[in-house]
């Protein structure tokens, strides 16, 4: 069994064990590995975008969005057509108006017997 003094001595020695230590260095060709990683990361940005878009949930959501947009455009165009047709149609007159118009035209046409 170690005495308290021995333990204290060991602790002090341990606390001083890092004094005068040297810096650790990475393995040789570190820069080459950093460059390779940089290129890998630049490529992986596009890869991650691709893999994100190819996820079934994202792909289905995208497809759904495209369908909704198509339907929206389609309905919008139908409404536009209807509005254009209404604008181009001749004005529908009521019965009384048409009779009156008819009479008037008859009167004009038969000014001279």
């Amino acid at each position: 069994m170690m005495s308290k003094k021995t333990i204290e001595g060991k602790i002090e020695r341990t606390l001083e064990s890092l004094d005068g230590m040297q810096r650790a260095t990475p393995q040789p060709w570190f820069f080459t590995r950093v460059k390779a990683r940089l290129q890998r990361e630049e490529r992986s940005v596009w890869e991650s975008i691709g893999s994100f878009l190819s996820k079934p949930a994202v792909a289905m959501a995208g497809l759904g969005l495209i369908l909704i947009l198509n339907l929206f455009v389609l309905f919008k165009q139908d409404n536009l057509h209807e509005a254009t047709n209404v604008a181009n149609q001749p004005v529908q007159l009521s019965d009384s108006e048409s009779i009156l118009a008819s009479n008037s035209s008859f009167d004009y046409e038969n000014v001279q017997p």
Partner: peptide, 19 residues
């Protein structure tokens, strides 16, 4: 074991790093 530690202090340094 830190590679920069002097040989005769390796054991103590390992204990210190653990702490």
């Amino acid at each position: 074991n830190h590679p920069g530690v002097v040989m005769d202090k390796k054991e103590d340094a390992a204990a210190l790093f653990n702490a």
